[in-house]
Nucleic acid binder design. Structure first.
Length: 479
DNA sequence: CCTGGAGTTGTCCTA
DNA sequence: TTAGGACAACTCCAG
């Protein structure tokens, strides 16, 4: 009798460094499946940009498997039912998968394990796309870390993450198994196709991930410490969407970075800084695991009654990149047009939404969720709470980014701002980040008519800052 | 249980 | 022009 295993692909869309797939390869036959279950996660089921990346990742995985003569089975429906039916259909005795850490994942995995067991099928769950399991990192008192620095120090004290695994040699099923067509899932936008041109910017899938990592380590990591803050420079890794979908594992990133450090000791500081950003991803996942309400509720309970405003017009202006603050608008338009935003600018726009507009961080979290290719429940929730001040190890209340100063400091020559806000392209550097201060003749010469070709500032920085400080000061009056 | 240093990414005012 | 301190007080976490 043929010994057949099912590999259930989730957010681990790759073939290398996948312990569960390597283990499944010991069976006579392996049938890989990806299940589209739109009921999972409720309001946190993937947004539009994520679906675009998912499509590309699945297409890439299909091709990689096809090279071994194996077809990726695509099915739609309730995950548990699909797995049970498919296991029965192909006579599988085992189902392999990687672990997830979302609030609903543990219960889902338990239910699936129990349901499969009824048909004498074993669910074999392997560690997920992290460096360390949440259970393996704790304070001396056994509690989860709530501050990043001691968390990361504890991670670094642990044994190195396991060495990475090669892609296993798989033998597919000896008969055809029904699969839906990826195109029928309609993961790509059509009318309108807002992702037109994204193929030139991104290469979803495992090969693209390794290209991006290799190029980053070869050409850009050496200036990471300073360069990562300059949005016009290519010194960030842009690995986040690949990590989000498991096109690459953080262990692969870790070991590649360590190898790079060995050959280029001068870049060691930059590389450690980069790895600490991988550490932030790790920290967010661990926090979400221990505090599953993170995406929906303020981590710091003092914020339960924070006087957030709810001005829909202002929120809309922020979303559309029409706030009148050039660096903010540049970021929001980069997001809308490319599915990505530079990290420094993410902080600026998030600070602007929560502190200048006093709009609840959850509105920003929601918008990013739909627009970002790397929309990740853990990183998105924790980062928004961090900026808003309610999160773990959060930004202090008085840290209110001045959007003019941030623009002048990090986009001094205006390259980034002019690219995404072309109506200001002819503004001189001196006034690019504060066009409302420009004399009439300068505006005329640059072809800018405030309130017409480019908005007047939505709020006045100084008074918005004072209003935020005053709102945040109400926190300390609460019990 | 107590103690004390520390805490991703800033801004503004003053001297 | 520039450097330093204030901006709350609190919680976290290791010793």
């Amino acid at each position: 009798m043929t010994d057949t295993a099912l590999y259930w692909f989730r957010d681990d869309l790759r073939l290398t460094d996948l312990a569960g797939l390597a283990a499944a390869a010991a069976h006579d036959q392996v049938v890989p499946v990806y299940i589209r279950d739109t009921s999972l996660g409720g309001e946190w089921s993937p947004g539009g940009a994520s679906d675009w990346w998912l499509h590309g990742s699945l297409e890439s995985l299909q091709q990689d498997l096809q090279r071994q003569g194996i077809t990726l089975v695509l099915r739609t429906g309730d995950t548990q039912s699909v797995l049970s039916e498919l296991a029965q259909e192909i006579g599988a005795n085992s189902v392999y998968c990687s672990r997830h850490y979302q609030p609903w994942s543990a219960a889902l995995e338990r239910e699936i394990r129990d349901a499969l067991a009824q048909g004498d099928v074993t669910l074999k769950r392997y560690p997920g796309t992290l460096l360390h399991e949440p259970e393996d990192v704790a304070t001396g008192g056994g509690t989860p870390f709530k501050v990043f620095t001691p968390f990361w120090r504890a991670c670094l004290r642990r044994p190195d993450p396991a060495p990475t695994l090669p892609a296993p040699t798989l033998r597919g099923a000896d008969r055809r198994i029904a699969s839906e067509a990826l195109a029928d899932w309609q993961l790509l936008p059509t009318a309108p196709n807002w992702a037109a041109g994204w193929d030139a910017l991104w290469q979803p899938g495992e090969a693209g991930a390794h290209d991006a990592l290799a190029q980053f380590l070869a050409d850009h990591v050496q200036d990471y410490d300073d360069g990562r803050d300059i949005p016009s420079q290519p010194n960030t890794s842009r690995l986040s969407p690949y990590l989000r979908f498991g096109n690459i594992s953080p262990r692969q990133v870790w070991h590649a970075a360590q190898a790079c450090k060995a050959t280029r000791p001068a870049a060691a500081g930059d590389i450690d800084k980069f790895l600490s950003e991988i550490g932030w991803r790790e920290f967010c996942y661990h926090l979400l695991f221990h505090f599953p309400a993170m995406p929906d509720e303020a981590f710091n309970p003092k914020f339960a009654f924070f006087p957030w405003g709810s001005d829909r017009d202002r929120l809309r202006a922020w979303e559309r990149g029409q706030t009148g603050y050039p660096i903010v608008d540049a970021g929001m338009r980069e997001l809308w047009q490319t599915g990505f935003m530079h990290n420094r600018v993410r902080m600026v726009v998030a600070s602007f939404l929560t502190k200048h507009l006093l709009i609840n961080w959850r509105e920003g979290e929601r918008w990013f969720w739909d627009c970002l290719l790397d929309a990740d429940l853990a990183s998105n929730a924790c980062s928004w709470q961090w900026v808003g001040g309610s999160g773990a190890d959060a930004s202090p209340y008085f840290r209110i980014f001045n959007p003019v100063a941030q623009g002048e400091k990090f986009d001094k020559a205006g390259e980034y701002t002019r690219r995404w806000v072309p109506e200001l392209a002819n503004m001189p550097d001196k006034f690019l980040h504060k066009p409302w201060e420009a004399p009439a003749e300068i505006l005329a010469e640059a072809g800018v008519v405030l309130g017409d070709t480019y908005p007047e500032p939505l709020v006045d920085h100084k008074s918005a800052r004072e209003a935020a400080l005053s709102a945040y000061s109400t926190l300390k009056e609460l019990p």
